[in-house]
Every structure is written in C-alpha cells, then in structure tokens.
Simulated scan of single mutants.
Amino acid sequence: MRKDAQENRQEILRVARFLIAQQGSDVSLRTIASTAGVGIATLYRNFPTREDLLLGIVQETAEEAEAAIAECLETWDADPEQAWRNYAHAVARQKIATFAMRMVETPGIEEIVEQIKATRAHVLGQAEAVLDRAKAAGFVGPDMTVLQFQIGLAIVTRPLPDTPFFDLPEGREWLIDVYLRGVRAE
C-alpha cells in the first residue's frame, strides 16, 4: 500500500473511532470521510461497509494493545514499576470503554460480534503475561483478572460530562495512578 493511502486509512480509523465515541455509532460515513480529509470513495475503498470500518477500528485497537504489552514486557526487567505504569497509561489512552459503549449500539453489529470477541480474547490472552508479572511484583492482588483490571481502568478514565478537569492529561494520569495504587496487593 502506498504511503499516502496508508496515511489516509489510519486517519479514517482515527477519526471514525473519535466520532463514534463522541456522536454514536450512527455518525454518517460522509462525516467521517470529510473530517478525515478524504472523499467518501476513499473511505469505501478502504472499508466497503460500516461493519468493515468497525472491524478495522477493533483491529487497530488490538494492535495498539499488543504494542503496549510488548513494550511493557521488554522494559519490565529494567524498571518493573515504571513498565507497569506505562502499560496502564497506554491502555487508558485507548479509551476503549467510550468507543465500545457506542459501538454496541450499531445496527447489524451481531454479524461481527464473534470476530470482535475473538480479537478481544486474543489480546486479553497476551495481556496475561503482563498481569502475571504485576501479580508477582505485588502491583495487583493475586485474584485479579486481565478483564477486571481493564474494565476498572476503563471506568476510572471514562470521560465525565461537563467536567473539564478530566479532559486534562494530568487529571487522567492522576486517576490512573490512584487506580494503580488501589489495586495493589495488600
């Protein structure tokens, strides 16, 4: 794929994720294309259906999560606490909860649910290695699951309406750090 075509695809995915999280799953594909700075034909060339676009977002999100897992595992031995903290912040930056809540409202989503579940299961399986290290280091209790950790993190960092404090990166970072302290093993 040409570099400009790849950049267009990435921008469509970025914009679609943002707009769906903001406006809901029924945001028009024309709005997504326009906001991404591409024509509707470019969007359809990359994502022939809304479901293809949603699967593209899910796949991109999975790739981001896998990169965060790899980074955490690669840096763990040098500084486990910083690697754990960086991992939590990377997961939180994905804002999965906001997007996922809107995505489930999409008509016809049931056609791709199994693919989404398989992708999620794959990523959660990879994240087990991070959580196992966090348990051994006492960063989380021994009974915590990957899904519990990520749901808790997603809830803590989900934007609140009309609360400018939580739109600031410092506010989000503070909440994540508080959450990490709260899940430590006793």
Rank of each mutant, 00 (worst) to 15 (best):
Val27Leu: 06
Ser28Phe: 02
Ser28Thr: 12
Leu29Arg: 06
Leu29Val: 05
Leu29Pro: 11
Leu29Trp: 04
Arg30Ala: 13
Thr31Gly: 00
Thr31Val: 12
Ile32Tyr: 01
Ala33Phe: 00
Ala33Lys: 01
Ser34Asn: 08
Thr35Ala: 07
Ala36Gly: 06
Ala36Asp: 03
Ala36Ser: 07
Val38Cys: 04
Val38His: 09
Gly39Ser: 09
Gly39Gln: 11
Gly39Lys: 08
Thr42Arg: 10
Thr42Met: 09
Leu43Pro: 00
Leu43Gln: 03
Tyr44Met: 02
Tyr44Ile: 06
Phe47Ser: 03
Phe47Lys: 02
Phe47Ile: 02
Thr49Ile: 04
Thr49Phe: 04
Arg50Glu: 07
Arg50Leu: 05
Arg50Val: 02
Glu51Ser: 11
Glu51Pro: 03
Glu51Val: 00
Asp52Lys: 12
Asp52Ser: 12
Leu53Asn: 08
Leu54Pro: 00
Leu54Ile: 13
Leu54His: 07
Leu55Val: 02
Leu55Met: 12
Leu55Glu: 01
Leu55Arg: 03
Gly56Pro: 05
Gly56Glu: 00
Gly56Val: 05
Ile57Ala: 03
Gln59Pro: 01
Thr61Asp: 14
Ala62Glu: 10
Ala62Gly: 15
Ala62Asn: 03
Glu64Gln: 13
Glu64Asp: 13
Glu64Ile: 07
Ala65Val: 02
Ala65Asp: 11
Ala65Ile: 05
Ala65Lys: 14
Glu66Met: 08
Glu66Ile: 09
Glu66His: 10
Ala67His: 11
Ala67Phe: 01
Ala67Glu: 15
Ala68Ile: 00
Ala68Arg: 02
Ala70Phe: 05
Leu73Gly: 02
Leu73Glu: 01
Thr75Asp: 12
Thr75Ser: 13
Trp76His: 02
Trp76Phe: 04
Ala78His: 10
Ala78Ser: 12
Asp79Ile: 04
Pro80Ser: 09
Pro80Glu: 06
Pro80His: 08
Glu81Gly: 05
Ala83Ser: 06
Trp84Arg: 04
Trp84Met: 08
Trp84Glu: 10
Asn86Asp: 15
Asn86Lys: 13
Asn86Pro: 00
Tyr87Asn: 08
Ala88Val: 00
Ala88Met: 14
His89Gln: 15
His89Leu: 15
Ala90Trp: 11
Ala92Arg: 09
Ala92Phe: 11
Arg93Lys: 15
Arg93Trp: 12
Gln94Ser: 11
Gln94Arg: 14
Lys95Phe: 08
Ile96Ser: 09
Ile96Cys: 01
Ile96Asn: 09
Ile96Asp: 07
Ala97Gly: 14
Phe99Thr: 01
Ala100Cys: 02
Met101Ile: 07
Arg102Ile: 04
Arg102Ala: 14
Arg102Asp: 00
Arg102Pro: 01
Met103His: 04
Met103Asp: 07
Val104Ala: 10
Val104Asn: 03
Thr106Ile: 06
Pro107Glu: 14
Gly108Cys: 01
Glu110Phe: 05
Glu111Asp: 08
Glu111Pro: 00
Val113Phe: 07
Val113Arg: 14
Gln115Gly: 12
Lys117Ser: 09
Lys117Tyr: 10
Thr119Cys: 13
Thr119Tyr: 03
Thr119Arg: 14
Arg120Gln: 13
Arg120Asn: 14
Arg120Asp: 10
Val123Pro: 05
Val123Gln: 08
Val123Ile: 11
Val123Tyr: 04
Leu124Val: 10
Leu124Pro: 00
Leu124His: 12
Leu124Arg: 11
Leu124Glu: 14
Gly125Thr: 07
